[in-house]
Computed example of a mutant assay.
Amino acid sequence: MLALIAGGGGLPQRVAAAQSKPPVICGYEGVAVEGLDVDQSFRLETLGSLIKSLQDLGVTQLCLCGAVPRPAFDPSKLDALTMPLVPTFQKALGAGDDGALRVLIDIFETAGFTVLAAHDLAPDLLAVPGILSGKAPDAQMAQDAARAADVVATLAPMDIGQCCIVGGGQVYGIETIGGTDHLLATLPQRVKTAAAILFKGPKTNQSRLVDMPTIGPATLEAAHKAGLAGVVIAAGNVIILEPERCKTLADDLGLVLWSRATP
């Protein structure tokens, strides 16, 4: 039996729809799960109880999918079954995003669950190589995409983020703890005249089980609002939600949408 540890955004719904049998949906308290009924609600301080409940249900496989903000830890809400996990939580909360997620995977695997990636359960989620929009990248945009990919790879050991904004060879922003939405909302005004692109791809050596880079229609709308000329993703390593709608939207907004293969 499969359970989804579901966060926000459209990914959990896509993964659930691809299954022959409905999975158990587990939602983090305070995080809305789109289009799905939550069977089990939990928080960090009750994770031990969630694990016991899923074991009792006969769940053997887990998939962590969707966006969940890094939780704060409230000792007053800790339950007895979660108490033994506190030292592990402390290690996770002091790590970067990827490090914290690796700790969480270890907790689930130690409890006997097999942790699966969203794209293992729904392989069509991964973007195939190619120009997905009617508008193609020019030579400058190709150079900017290569520079942005290099920046993301260089910053990978610091576990900062998965995307970068580059235009005319100039780096205008990198993703940090605020995520892609915050990056796009805080760009300097001059980016609007730079024909800049948003590049998104996985960090080097990033676990592919969780936190795979993801884009969807909202990403394109935010990129357009920020004045960018295109969105470039690492082919085969980024999940694209509603791909057909994204292609149509890119054309409607005059954006380049390019699933770039690694040279």
Rank of each mutant, 00 (worst) to 15 (best):
G27H: 03
Y28V: 02
V31N: 06
A32E: 15
A32L: 12
V33Y: 01
G35T: 11
G35Y: 06
L36Y: 04
D37G: 06
V38H: 04
V38G: 09
S41R: 15
F42R: 08
F42T: 08
R43K: 15
R43Y: 10
L44R: 04
E45M: 04
T46W: 08
L47W: 05
G48R: 10
S49H: 00
S49P: 00
L50E: 13
L50H: 10
I51V: 15
K52F: 00
S53H: 08
D56Q: 15
D56V: 00
L57A: 13
L57N: 00
L57V: 00
G58Y: 06
Q61N: 12
L62I: 13
C63D: 07
C65S: 10
C65Q: 07
P69E: 08
P69Q: 04
A72H: 08
A72K: 14
A72E: 15
A72D: 13
F73M: 07
F73Q: 05
S76V: 10
K77M: 10
L78K: 06
L78Q: 11
A80M: 13
A80S: 14
L81C: 00
L81S: 05
P84Q: 03
L85V: 00
V86S: 09
V86D: 02
T88K: 11
T88Q: 10
Q90R: 14
K91A: 12
K91L: 12
K91H: 09
L93C: 07
L93S: 05
G94M: 05
A95F: 01
G96P: 10
G96A: 07
D97Q: 13
D97A: 12
D97N: 14
D98M: 12
D98I: 08
A100I: 02
L101T: 01
L101K: 06
V103K: 01
L104F: 06
I105H: 11
I107C: 04
F108H: 14
F108R: 11
A111D: 14
A111L: 05
G112W: 01
G112P: 10
F113L: 02
F113W: 11
T114I: 02
V115S: 08
L116W: 01
L116E: 12
A118L: 04
L121I: 02
L121S: 02
A122E: 14
A122K: 10
P123W: 03
D124T: 11
D124V: 01
D124L: 00
L125I: 07
A127P: 10
A127L: 06
A127S: 13
P129C: 03
P129I: 00
P129M: 02
G130K: 11
I131H: 07
L132W: 15
L132A: 13
L132N: 11
S133P: 06
G134E: 15
K135W: 01
A136C: 00
P137Y: 08
D138P: 01
A139E: 15
A139I: 08
Q140F: 02
A142Y: 02
A142D: 04
